[in-house]
Design a protein around this nucleic acid. Sequence first.
DNA 1: GCAATAGTTAAGTAAATGCTTCAGTGTTTA
DNA 2: TAAACACTGAAGCATTTACTTAACTATTGC
Lengths: 110, 110
Amino acid sequence: MLHDPAQLDLMFQALADPARRQMVDRLSRGPASVSQLAEPLAMSLSGVVQHLNLLEASGLVRTQKLGRVRTCQIEPKALRAAEHWINERRLAWERRLDRLGDFLAETEGH
Amino acid sequence: MLHDPAQLDLMFQALADPARRQMVDRLSRGPASVSQLAEPLAMSLSGVVQHLNLLEASGLVRTQKLGRVRTCQIEPKALRAAEHWINERRLAWERRLDRLGDFLAETEGH
DNA sequence: GCAATAGTTAAGTAAATGCTTCAGTGTTTA
DNA sequence: TAAACACTGAAGCATTTACTTAACTATTGC
């Protein structure tokens, strides 16, 4: 479910916007309401809600509403999925370099 | 230089597009020419070049031209920077949860 | 030298994105 | 019960994005 390419698409899309990354950054320090998320951003509350909806659709943020306030939290599993995608590619590249190094070292020995 | 927010912006922006992620994926298995990158993509060569230029501007890919062929490689340092941004936020969240858990366990003990 | 190859650049376009304002809906508080 | 609060949704708009085609430059092979 988390490695579903469509979900990965939404996650990287969501992370591409600076305002949304700022929101994720804020949430990494603890839950927040929509207004609290909006406070440091030079943007209307409505704009923030739209960003938040994208973050939620991507799975990066989970929210729940109690009374009139919506509380937002990070979903670490989703962050881990994005992290993992990048990590796998980087490791594949680095392993390839290692093998190449070994090969060169061996052939040099003869 | 790699933690420069503008550069991070370009990197996440670059990773947001599926075609560009497919190019990074291809490159994680080894260097490739522009035409080789283009081959699996349902897109004109020109479109691929434009994506490639973004990838290069973001620092995720480095290229060099020999004769008429441009060879592309992944820049693992840049991948690591994006990875690191996500990782830090996720860990901040998880550490927070741990402290909360400890606190609850302690207060329950009395 | 001529043709094929590999890539580049510019111009145009349709769709997506990131906002805004404004007019709501429920929920608390005085 | 009325006003303040916390959000929500729709409509509109300027900009950016992801392409396309077409014309061009530089290599390489015959």
